[in-house]
Design a protein around this nucleic acid. Structure first.
Lengths: 235, 235
DNA sequence: CGCATCCTTCGACGTGCGGCGAAACGTGCT
DNA sequence: AGCACGTTTCGCCGCACGTCGAAGGATGCG
């Protein structure tokens, strides 16, 4: 390299992400939750030994951080910049193959609404998140009294989610929308209710979901200030 | 992989960047200029055969694009998203040690005005391109009679550029501005004149250039409707 | 204490991939 | 046509790395 700015070596970092198993581990961690080494091994579909080796490399590569808790070791992404890298990488990685019509239809469905781990993502996911914020149901990582009333009326066990071992209401980066949607225990609880009520239904494509007619109406009513079971106006 | 996001495979893209030689090639291309295969081989410090293999993989990985010109094959990054990936990757891989003041100053200089292969790029480059379009000197890939008069008065050999083997007046994507500037034979011819007249001067940093006082005045006069040598008003 | 669980280290195996030289291909120059 | 040059293709070699089973610490529970 003679003339060009001697930039940072990007190769080592890229190499860490380049392995499919490590990539699976990292994307599993993208939700923001810290996961135990064993869980990550299962998710990536490799033995514990293999996962351990990968986590070791990711660790001293500075891509993940670890917290020991009892006999578990919980790994998480080392910072939001790491999530950024994965996001932008996914964007170009997803592109180039000029997908078939069938695939592009599926891709559009996934962009519209899908499950991310166990909560809602895509346009539907960030939309829901935005509305919860706008209406003052969510403030930071906490549910306001107002939100507690609205979600409780829906049938969401907010208290149960709060007691769960996972993080309560973390933001989860959405790669198709480049914005946050609701993850964690609360995101999962809400999503579960949406399915129970039949407001969302799983589609033919693996992670794709569709809003039902009932869901459209229910959500509109929910955020237009009407209670669901009773008729007491809000605010 | 059973439940977790099977989003876009980031691993294959990362793998393409993971090799030091390919990383060197890609960062060499980050300047925006299209470089010949042989040049890239020299820069990366490998044989032509090796570089060719890498370029081939980068090509069908969709990271670079190629333009054949005579017996040369000029490679460039496939798009601004690729540049983005490299930047972000460099951000986390590169020692967070914030760039020195000296380096950030250099970076700003490059954003303002630089040479892209042999023509003007950066804010100055796209600005010049915009003005040529606005004033009706350029229409598509052609120079209008009006443009011919203006450029001819400047001292640009438009006819010579038109006879050149390279493309006459292609748009060249500018990474820092994310917009087009003027490349090709005409872009090079104009840039050459700007240097001859002393309107632009090369700076201490490799590809950086600076507009001179004479250049500021000359360009202002040029586009305000005044001829340079004669005094015949335009339009 | 002793056992179970979780995680890591060790040793060994297979393969994938980057490297080069030589030859083939295509294009421009005379 | 013939030569020169840039680029790609073709073998071939060697190393690095991902994989696993088994053994070796840790830690928590009864």
């Amino acid at each position: 390299m003679e003339h060009v700015a001697a930039d940072a070596d990007i190769a080592p970092v890229a190499a860490l992400i380049a392995d499919p198993t490590r990539a699976a581990i990292l994307t599993s961690l993208l939700g923001g939750q810290a996961l135990a080494a064993g869980e990550l091994a299962r998710m990536a579909g490799v033995s514990a030994a293999t996962a351990s080796a990968h986590l070791s490399r990711l660790l001293d590569g500075g891509l993940v951080a670890v917290v020991q808790q009892g006999r578990h070791r919980y790994y998480r992404l080392a910072g939001h910049e790491i999530a950024e890298v994965l996001e932008v990488l996914a964007r170009v990685g997803g592109r180039p193959p000029v997908r078939s019509l069938r695939q592009s239809r599926q891709a559009r469905m996934l962009e519209e609404a899908r499950t991310c781990y166990d909560h809602l993502a895509g346009r539907a996911g960030v939309g829901l998140f935005d509305r919860l914020r706008e209406t003052g149901c969510l403030a930071g990582e906490e549910v306001t009294p107002e939100g507690e009333r609205l979600l409780g009326g829906l049938g969401v066990d907010v208290e149960g989610a709060r007691r769960a071992r996972r993080r309560f209401a973390p933001e989860c980066l959405d790669w198709t929308e480049r914005r946050a949607h609701l993850g964690g225990a609360l995101g999962a609880a809400i999503t579960a209710v949406l399915f129970e009520r039949g407001w969302y239904a799983r589609g033919p494509v693996p992670r794709a979901v569709n809003v039902t007619e009932a869901g459209r109406e229910g959500l509109a009513a929910l955020f237009s200030g009407k209670e669901l079971t009773s008729h007491t106006p809000v605010t």
